[in-house]
Amino acid sequence: MTTLVDRADTRFDGDRRRSDDGYFHKDETATYLEYGLSGRDTMVVRIAWQDVRRSRGQSYDEARGLAASEIGWRRQVWRRDATVASLQATALIPGQGENVANQAFGSGEMAAELRALLGQGLGRHGFVEAQTAWRWRDGEYLDEARLDLTAGWRVTDRWQVLAQSFSVWSVETDRPGTRAFDQHKLQLSVSRELGAQTIQIGASFTPTGRNAINQQALFLSVWRRF
């Protein structure tokens, strides 16, 4: 489970310049589940409840409730020593909150995503992982390409440091009311194991983007193995 506080009072315009843009507030609590169906197959589920507000000029938007929910299936397709490759298919079901980045809350229709994951262990103390995805959106909303990168280093038996980046690009040209965009976030966190649980705390920021909100966030996660 992750609790996140996300704020922004500027945005990136079409030339990647920061400009004043009212404010964006998002408080979110999300539950994420991975359940092994077999030695190679895993079910993944994510459900998020949000309280979101957006003010921009004379426009104001707010919502409370579920954001887009995700349900998917991941299959390990290759493994050699400390290297693992997987594929994941996910369906996204819209809710009342933020379903599509930079769009009105509650807007957005069904979406589907195909994701490839490649992880490499670095001895007993670290790992690196890359995930690339293509997200198809129904209706007027633009399809997206995504790239997530993670590096983790175990400082002690219980403490770990994680550095991550999350990037998304729209892969279609502007449509009426929907502008092409990209957004890139960097995230740093530390985690500590407490028996079957892991506590993680971290922060993220947005160093660059185009037609996107300049977001900064703090989060606290509790993970439990079962």
Rank of each mutant, 00 (worst) to 15 (best):
F24N: 02
E144G: 05
L122P: 09
N102L: 06
M110Y: 07
S170P: 05
M110K: 12
S221V: 01
F166T: 06
P176K: 01
R11L: 03
E113S: 13
Q200G: 03
E193Y: 01
S170G: 05
F181V: 06
W78M: 09
A180C: 07
R146N: 06
L149S: 02
N102S: 09
A130D: 09
F12P: 00
I201E: 10
R80F: 14
G152Y: 00
A151T: 11
Y23L: 09
R192W: 00
I199N: 05
D41H: 08
A145I: 03
F105L: 07
D27F: 14
Y60L: 14
T198L: 02
A130C: 11
A48V: 05
R79T: 12
A163I: 09
H25E: 15
T3D: 15
R158C: 02
G209P: 01
G72R: 02
R115C: 07
N102A: 10
D51M: 06
R79F: 10
G202A: 02
W134F: 13
E109I: 01
M43D: 11
Q103S: 09
G97M: 05
A133C: 07
V155Y: 04
R75F: 03
Q58W: 11
G22C: 01
H125L: 13
Q58C: 11
L186R: 03
N214V: 01
L142V: 08
R54E: 07
R11T: 03
R40Y: 11
F166M: 12
G108Y: 00
T2L: 14
T206L: 00
S189V: 06
Q103L: 07
F12E: 00
Q164Y: 05
V168N: 00
G65P: 04
V52F: 07
Y32N: 15
V222S: 11
G65Q: 03
F219W: 05
R18Y: 09
L66S: 12
Q96V: 14
F24L: 14
Y60C: 12
A163G: 12
E28Y: 11
A130H: 10
A217P: 08
L162C: 13
D182Y: 06
R210I: 08
E193H: 03
A104I: 14
R115K: 13
W49Y: 15
T31C: 14
A101V: 13
L186W: 06
G152K: 00
L194F: 12
S191K: 02
D9G: 05
F166H: 13
A104R: 12
G36R: 07
D138Q: 11
G195F: 00
V100D: 00
Q197N: 15
K26P: 13
N214D: 10
A104Y: 06
S38D: 04
E144S: 03
W73L: 07
W159Q: 14
A82C: 15
A212V: 02
Q200Y: 06
Y35S: 13
Q103D: 05
